[in-house]
Design a protein around this nucleic acid. Structure first.
Length: 464
RNA sequence: GUCCCCAUCGUCUAGAGGCCUAGGACACCUCCCUUUCACGGAGGCGACCGGGGUUCGAAUCCCCGUGGGGACGCCA
């Protein structure tokens, strides 16, 4: 049977990191088995769904490069279909009307809670052989409930967690259509997974408890039961559940912060899944290797340090043109013009091995295009009164020599010898004067790129 | 409270009864490289939640604890 997986987010916010991983695994599974990956937008919660959120999800998927073969399907556009199925279930007797008001249910719930019972519907409107139902109250539009089996157990072999079995006694008759006739989540999922021919449902493990209900409905409809794979959740860097308090929860925020999609993808792939000792791999490789057998069933804590390491790796590996474009875009948005400075590609080559993120790279390279702010502490430490005349004299020579790294290096060496100093004694003050700080690539290389004019004027601005 | 799930270095993980004196990666520490900081290279520190079984043998299987998480909506 051809594999068909799906990613089914509800558009109530951006695509967060947990959702992205679910999408990634679902996508990879389809790719691995040359099946289809379907995108379905679960937007039946009209009050909370927004078109902006739909767009945010699409943006996130696109940024990561997770392409889908079918969809996006919108559940709101499938209302007619759901209503037909509900009517059929009503006709078949696998669903029934319930006239309980929300208030009644609230009372019931409180009673059960106070007795330390699991709150659930007591089945008062459930038709039963020989049971006499109360008179239908006036003016209360009924909801439709699924007639869940009362005995036995629902079990499935979860592709991640193994065998899971839940007694039907734990389940109640869930509402599948609201009083206004609109279908609810658990029901739409069932109809969609069925009609879209989903073979593997790969989703977050917060859905484990929905699975037995869904399987029961699938059975009532005579549908095939897909396989289920429940992925554990991703915890924040602090080990706490991911929430709005954790800054970077939207995948697009990783873009903003200067992470490459390859790095995020590689990191996410490795979070909860493994292939022996492999740490760094392409998505193509991932799709070949990916399987559900090597997914960890326990929750995983997000680790920004490791993401940084991977990101640094991908920055080093990145295609030069792409990298330059990214850096250029980011410089531009910071209002830094590169027109008057050195060729950006050379600057990027000089710095790409030193940055964890594109933003770090950008920040460390700004001084080529703008006068840097001088770090006070560094200046204090390295620009000493004794060295000032030496540097000043050097500047005069720099103004006239050949402009090459070799010549500049030779000049510094010469000064070093002449004044019986160590190389850093001269390199460090130069570094501070030219770049603003005490860290940079080799100083002669920096000077060559910066250009004679900038070098001399930046030195003179300080030495006078 | 009830039900369900989970449990190996600080973190992500390898591990399907002997290959485990528990492997890799990030982080951390030391050293090397060096013109500072990075990069890179070589080392190091560091874990099977506890208790019972099963077995000749258990990180691996079973049970019980403990701890963590999830679910219990006319949300998805």
């Amino acid at each position: 049977m051809t594999v068909r997986t799906r990613f089914a987010p509800s558009p109530t916010g951006f695509l967060h990191i947990g959702g992205a991983r679910t999408a990634l695994f679902s996508w990879a599974y389809a790719r691995k088995h040359r099946g289809s990956f379907i995108l379905r937008i679960e937007d039946t919660d009209v009050a909370r769904s927004t078109p902006e959120a739909v767009q945010a999800i699409l943006d996130g998927m696109n940024w990561l490069g997770l392409d889908w073969d079918e969809g996006p399907f919108y559940q709101m556009e499938r209302m007619d279909r759901y209503k037909l199925v509900i009517q059929k279930m009503l006709d078949d007797g696998t669903a029934y009307h319930c006239y309980c008001s929300k208030e009644e249910l609230e009372v019931l719930r409180e009673q059960q809670m106070s007795q330390n019972l699991k709150p659930r519907y007591d089945g008062r409107w459930r038709p039963e052989e020989g049971k006499v139902l109360a008179d239908i109250p006036q003016g209360i539009p009924p909801v439709v409930r699924f007639k869940n089996p009362k005995t036995g157990a629902v079990a499935w072999d979860d592709l991640v967690k193994g065998h899971i079995s839940i007694s039907n006694e734990e389940l109640d008759d869930l509402i599948i259509a609201r009083a206004d006739g609109t279908p609810t989540y658990n029901f739409c999922v069932v109809v969609d997974d069925w009609e879209m021919g989903i073979t593997q449902v790969i989703r977050g493990d917060d859905h484990v408890n929905n699975t037995p209900r869904q399987i029961n409905m699938l059975k009532a409809l005579g549908a095939n039961i897909p396989q289920y794979a429940h992925l554990s959740m991703i915890l924040g860097d602090d080990g706490q559940k991911l929430s709005k308090r954790h800054g970077a929860v939207s995948v697009m925020q990783y873009d903003d912060e200067g992470y490459l999609p390859e790095a995020v993808l590689n990191y996410l792939a490795r979070l909860g899944w493994s292939h022996g000792d492999e740490e760094v791999f392409s998505m193509q490789q991932f799709c070949e290797w990916f399987d559900l057998d090597h997914i960890t069933p326990s929750a995983a804590q997000f680790n920004t340090e490791k993401l940084n390491w991977l990101n640094a790796h991908y920055i080093k590996q990145a295609d030069s043109t792409t990298l330059v474009q990214e850096v250029s875009k980011r410089l531009q948005s910071k209002g830094v013009s590169i027109a008057a400075g050195p060729e950006l590609s050379k600057v990027v080559e000089m710095y790409r091995e030193r940055a964890n993120t594109l933003n770090e790279l950008v920040a460390s390279v700004v001084y080529f295009y703008q006068l840097p702010a001088i770090d006070e502490a560094a200046a204090q430490k390295h620009i000493t009164p004794e060295i000032l005349p030496v540097i000043k004299a050097l500047a005069d020579q720099l103004a006239v020599i050949d402009w090459s790294a070799e010549a500049i290096h030779g000049l510094i060496e010469q000064a070093v010898l002449q004044h019986a100093l160590k190389f850093p004694k001269i390199a460090m003050p130069l570094r501070v004067m030219l770049t603003g700080g005490a860290q940079s690539p080799s100083i002669d290389g920096v000077m060559v790129l910066l250009g004679r004019e900038s070098v001399v004027s930046r030195i003179k601005a300080i030495t006078g």
